[in-house]
Design a binder for these strands. Structure first.
Lengths: 224, 224
DNA sequence: GCGATCCTGCGTAGTACTACGCAACGGGAC
DNA sequence: GTCCCGTTGCGTAGTACTACGCAGGATCGC
């Protein structure tokens, strides 16, 4: 990995996961690496940000390893917030989903790596090495699927921001009227977006769109 | 089967989870307990059953700790299969969901304990002690919710078989007309069931019912 | 047998969503 | 500037779903 001219210092790591057992497993693996020190843990995004705010600026971690799906503030929002405040801190995303849309969201939010929780144990260490060296790392299964599906074939990528807003509302079980109110637009506008969504996503029937939206959201926000 | 006049022997444990990190975390905790020995691991239900089939009958584990949600054969099916073949082996279910319906299914399948993955670490050990002693253990949050909601108050339990059929169709994104066709009844009948479903489940709005149905069906693969 | 429950189906009214087409406005790209 | 695109919104028609109430037939337990 990287060669320091300064005296050798282990890379500082902050672990963020709401599952105690996962944190334990990571801590155990990382403790075996002399080049790494776990300096803190948190069980959700807000706790992680609070931890970082309390931390001395010269003792911030070099790497944040976070779960993607947590109660409260999830890994994507955390990566986003961290990337704006401390872009120098590497972010490695942990996930149980091989859903490529999550991967893209994570990378857009500033994550440099994406590792699946059921991946072989040494993949985690390889990923840490890579992101600390400034490289990008994907779990083998993710990389394979990216090659298979193509880097931008997912229909969600074709959606405009506003269409995502509407899809989000649909996935939360809201009626058009409620979505319109929450976005401050007319019901007709929501209907237009909805029609466009169905065309873009190739969905027929009204229930189908709700199903699709719930499945897209259901994984990280409502799941647990 | 085993009489405890024989010399002291640590309890044998089989770990089943598709997440390497979770297995690592568990193994680490259990290694600190002299009264326990991890004798095997598997990453899904079928692998666990295959492992058990290869095992000498006099060296079977005393306890199986399994994740509830795994690719392929999940924890509930595994508990069910194991409970029929080896009812003497205690089963402790691990889950990220505090959904009481999962808890009930697990217990019906023969599990003796249900621990959440984000529970404090000592809860796992307490749960192991309990189920090895023949007692039943629930994570604190599960126990609290059971008290709050009542032991059998889950609305899904109140549904009739036909209502489940309709809910299933809704969750697959079908329209009333399609559900009616697939069940061989009239649209009006489906509408009646649908109205009853919303009353029983306390749901308002049409999208809300679809959302609920999708979450009930798709919940096995979801999670953080 | 009798009551309870479930499944089935209809009538009626009102509300929500679909499926077009059309168009004005603003922001970027070229 | 001009063009493209995203966002916003309306008109019109048709379809789907909601929300009651009512009721016959089947099944099961007592």
């Amino acid at each position: 990995m990287s060669s320091y001219s300064e005296p050798y210092r282990p890379a500082r790591v902050l672990l963020v996961d709401d599952h105690t057992l996962v944190r334990d497993g990571m801590r155990m693996h990382l403790a075996l690496q002399p080049s790494l020190t776990v300096v803190g843990e948190a069980d959700d995004g807000e706790a992680a940000l609070a931890w970082l705010a309390r931390r001395q600026p010269d003792a911030l971690p070099d790497l944040l390893i976070t779960d993607i799906g947590m109660r409260g503030m999830g890994g994507i929002a955390l990566a986003d917030a961290l990337h704006q405040r401390h872009p120098e801190i590497a972010v490695l995303m942990l996930s149980m989903h091989d859903n490529l849309e999550y991967v893209r969201q994570a990378m857009r939010a500033g994550a440099r790596g994406y590792v699946l929780k059921d991946a072989p144990a040494d993949e985690l260490l390889a990923a840490i090495d890579a992101v600390l060296a400034g490289r990008v790392f994907y779990s083998a299964r993710i990389a394979r699927r990216m090659i298979e599906e193509g880097p931008a074939s997912h229909p969600l990528d074709a959606l405009t921001p506003r269409e995502r807003d509407i899809l989000n509302g649909i996935g939360r079980g809201l009626a058009n009227k409620e979505i319109a109110a929450s976005l401050g637009v007319s019901v007709r506008t929501v209907e237009t977006h909805r029609l466009n969504l169905k065309r873009k996503l190739g969905i027929e029937g009204r229930a189908g769109l709700v199903k699709y939206a719930v499945e897209q959201l259901g994984g990280d926000a409502a799941g647990g």
